[in-house]
Design a protein around this nucleic acid. Structure first.
Lengths: 187, 187
DNA sequence: AGCCGCATGTGATAAATATCACAAAATCAA
DNA sequence: TTGATTTTGTGATATTTATCACATGCGGCT
């Protein structure tokens, strides 16, 4: 079950069985049903999560209109949390809920820091992961600045073909920054 | 001169004089004139830079139209490089050039890794810096998805008031993902 | 001072995208 | 299965933003 998680870490930092077991012992398994919240605005965000199974969306709700704006999906092999709230221990400003029944591995801030301090390999993993995350967000900003709705959608289709059938189009539209009607008329 | 740099690191990881001196010895000073390139598409990107003085812009050029799309500015106290190229040692895909005569502190990948391995404080600084960078990009994506050109510009004005008079409006428009004409008609 | 480029503003028009309304198709739950 | 909800598509129209064209202003340079 946690093999997915081990492979994920080992793609950056190879581990012995003991090392992986030690890391895993700092995580707790969380199971959620479809529509359940992982994080809700105002929450204390105590954990960062790795998705073992299922699919979640992270979004903010515009108070006036009540409209949701999705800025991240996470399926198997992805990480998710309200990073700002998690790191600065401030109340969550976003919501995360499940599009499917999901299973996640969660780690607390203190355990994360503890592992990073104890295990250079884990720390290295975190740093590399954070760097790649930064790069991918930067690419997404470039796309938002440069590309039309059509081009952004095409990029999404080629980059995440496995998500297209799994996530309702209205949510993908939100992620791309267009209305569902506009998305429906593309391609 | 490098006091700015020291304060910047110490905001996250307090240092002794010796520690700071040791860190600084791994950086080299680079001075560039207005219009000079710090990074050009295709370059090997050997360094990551901290801006001591001046202002630079990072952008990609669309091959067909020749149009530039600016995705980052960096002034005093900011970091800049082509992160993807720097970390994965692939050729640069972006350009960075100077809007003003500028002075930067550069560190090579190897020296960066060496310092991170030798000094937990430096490593901690890098990890925290990377996390905050990630958070700020995420907020920018949220803004691109949720907000109109008018709202994005207002946010820019309130967030970076010191940049408004320093950077030509056409460049700010590019950063916000609108044309210079549209920006000129706002507010 | 006078010239030249860059920066900025603005009008007219076109294109892209949003909004509102409705209906059909697909999916879910009892 | 069946009714209800969710998802998707599409027409008509409004709004936002881009494009093209031109004029003015402003600063640096000789």
């Amino acid at each position: 079950m946690a093999q997915l998680f081990r492979d994920h870490i080992e793609a950056i930092s190879p581990l012995t069985d003991d090392e992986f077991g030690y890391i895993l012992s700092h995580y707790t398994l969380k199971k959620l049903r479809k529509h359940a919240f992982l994080v809700q605005e105002g929450d204390n965000v105590r954990q960062e999560y790795f998705v073992l199974k299922g699919c979640v969306k992270a979004y903010t709700t515009e108070p006036e209109s009540g409209k949701d704006f999705i800025f991240q999906f996470a399926v198997e092999d992805w990480w998710i949390t309200d990073r700002e709230a998690f790191f600065s221990k401030t109340p969550a400003t976003i919501n995360i809920d499940c599009l499917e029944d999901s299973e996640l591995l969660g780690i607390t801030y203190d355990n994360r820091e503890k592992l990073a301090a104890e295990m250079p390999k884990y720390e290295h993993f975190l740093r590399v992961k954070s760097n790649w995350g930064y790069v991918s967000l930067q690419k997404r900003i470039q796309l938002m600045i440069m590309a039309s709705a059509q081009e952004r959608y095409e990029k999404f289709l080629s980059q995440y073909p496995h998500l297209v059938s799994r996530i309702p189009k209205a949510f993908i539209a939100s992620y791309l920054g267009v209305t569902r009607e506009t998305l429906s008329r593309l391609k």
